[in-house]
Design a binder for these strands. Structure first.
Lengths: 137, 137
DNA sequence: TAATTTCGCTTGCAAAATGCAAGATAAATA
DNA sequence: TATTTATCTTGCATTTTGCAAGCGAAATTA
């Protein structure tokens, strides 16, 4: 799975979409960023029910694109832990703005109120806090 | 084309992906937001070369989802102008953060330097300016 | 030590989405 | 009246997705 990501243009929006322009990739990033999930089976258990082949495909693509790193677990050699790289962590502001937008426009959103409040009223510090927590690993 | 958008969960990230989680939708939003494009043929001409059936599909989906409105042109009745609704305009911060991320991580980015500078150093005012300009139509 | 379970995938196949080229329709222009 | 402009639609081949089953290595249980 070493398919080069094809480039349709050098537009920054297009570049981003070539990496995470699909229905699943940002959910994996979300799980790594906010839900403290880190293994293949963690991701499988999320509410949206990604299928195993898509998950494997996206994880290897994300590694290829440099947003995620796969590491062998220290205690169990048969276990892998995925974590965000700095490039992946740099998506924190993007994800937070998406949460802000959806929380505003989706009546049924389950975005936690205190999370949304911080995004709306204290976004700069909130970003820093999350980044700090992610880097301290 | 009145297909209900299916909901996999009530997660805000997932909600957003159900609307713009694909390779094309945000390019149309980009064209409306930053490039002053507004017609079907404008969108067709963008560098990424969307095909006609996909464009028609996404435009009607975006109308359905309430991000875009289609209006008959005042001078030419055979012409339609698409414009962002308030819900669409609320994506400005999301797109700007994506630009910031891609400009940082894509060596070949063509993101204009002065645009990126403002996103990085004066993002709050920059958002307001763009929003104001989009609403003044 | 043998059997079972966990973990991280891969494979096969049907269904859906995409990409490409051609065509259709209605209004505007020459 | 003939041509061009503008916005799509259709048909079809290719690609991607979704679902279920299977597989191999390591870890756990009996």
């Amino acid at each position: 799975m070493k398919d080069e990501i094809k480039r349709r243009s050098d537009c920054p929006i297009s570049y981003a979409l070539e990496i995470f322009g699909d229905k699943w990739t940002l959910l994996i990033i979300r799980d790594l960023m906010f839900k403290e999930k880190k293994t293949y089976s963690d991701f499988l258990q999320s509410a949206e029910k990604i299928s195993t082949n898509i998950l494997a495909d996206r994880l290897s693509m994300l590694e290829c694109a440099g947003l995620v790193k796969r590491k062998v677990d220290k205690e169990k050699k048969s276990k892998y832990n995925y974590e965000l790289t700095d490039k992946g962590i740099d998506l924190v502001p993007v994800l937070l703005e998406i949460v802000r937008w959806s929380a505003k426009h989706d009546k049924k959103t389950e975005a936690p109120k205190e999370f949304v409040d911080r995004v709306v009223n204290d976004s700069e510090n909130f970003v820093k806090e999350i980044v700090k927590q992610l880097k301290g690993k």
